[in-house]
Amino acid sequence: MRGKADLPRPTDAELEILTVLWSTGPATVRQVYETIARRREAQYSTTLKFMQIMADKGLLLRDEEQRAHVYRAARPREWTQQQLAGHLLERAFSGSARALLVGALSAKKTSKAELAELRKLLDEYTKEAK
C-alpha cells in the first residue's frame, strides 16, 4: 500500500471521477459514466480508460469480484482537499476567493463554543414554543 505522500495530484478529469465516486460511493464504470454524462458530453470508453489509469496510479481501488468491476476512491475526499490546499498559490488567494463568495454561510467558520451556544438557543426556543 503506498504511503499518502506518494499519490500524485489528480488531474481535472481524474478529480471529476473521484468526485463522482465520493458522491455516490463505490460504482462501476457505467454508473460513473452516466453521472458524468448528465453534466457534459462524455464517452464511455474515455471514462473507462481514465479509471483504469487511475487504478494503476493508485488513486482508485478496483474490486474485481463481480463481472463489472467496482471502483472506489483510494482516499477520502478530505485528503484531496488537503493536497489541493497545500498548493501555495491556492492557499495565498483562498482568502480573496472567500470575499467573492455568495452562499448560505459566511466564509469564516463558527467556533465550537459558539455552535454549542447556538444549540442552546435553539433548544430554548423549542421549549418555549411548546
Binding site: 488537503q82 467556533s111 447556538l118
Partner: peptide, 15 residues
C-alpha cells in the same frame, strides 16, 4: 483544512 481562525464565542455572524 483551513488557516482561518474561528470566530469568537459570541457575537458571530451566524449567531
Amino acid at each position: 483544512p483551513s488557516r482561518e481562525p474561528a470566530l469568537a464565542a459570541s457575537g458571530g455572524s451566524l449567531m
